[in-house]
Amino acid sequence: MGFAALYPSYTTGIDDLEADMQATKLLLTTDNAGRIQEIPPLPPNARLEAIFLVIEQGESPSAKRKPSPRIVGLGAIHDDPIAPVAAADEWEAKP
């Protein structure tokens, strides 16, 4: 009895095919540490080969950039950050 017959909810629709290798598509999700959340039942005493393709990767809250707590609130803006550094007449080309 093959994997498809033992675990029909995890098959790709090939129920009666007996072969050396059968491909089964599983969609797995991981937690914020990268561990698989729900491990599916697997056939006993079997060697399995897995290839993982990341189809969607969410941004974890810890991945957002934040300043160090030691420097939060220490910065200050004293001038207009959008104002030009030189006067308008200084932008003209000089002969």
Rank of each mutant, 00 (worst) to 15 (best):
I55F: 04
P84F: 06
M1A: 08
A93H: 05
I36M: 11
K66R: 13
T30C: 07
P69T: 14
G34Y: 07
I39K: 08
D31A: 02
S60V: 10
A46L: 00
A33N: 13
P61D: 15
D89T: 04
I51Q: 12
V72A: 11
T12I: 04
L42H: 13
K66G: 00
T12Q: 01
G73M: 00
M1H: 07
L17P: 01
R70F: 00
L6E: 04
N32C: 08
K64T: 15
H78C: 12
M21H: 12
V54R: 03
D16A: 08
R65W: 14
G58C: 06
A50W: 13
F3L: 00
L6Q: 05
Q22P: 01
A4G: 01
D16K: 10
F3R: 02
D20I: 09
K94F: 09
A46G: 06
D15M: 08
K25P: 06
P40V: 13
E90M: 02
A76P: 03
K64M: 11
K64F: 14
P44M: 06
E92M: 01
A23E: 14
E49D: 10
S9W: 02
A50R: 07
T29S: 14
P81H: 07
R70A: 08
E18T: 12
D20C: 09
K94W: 09
L6W: 04
A83L: 05
A5T: 10
P40Q: 12
A93Q: 03
V72W: 00
M1E: 05
Q57A: 12
E90S: 04
A63V: 07
I77Y: 02
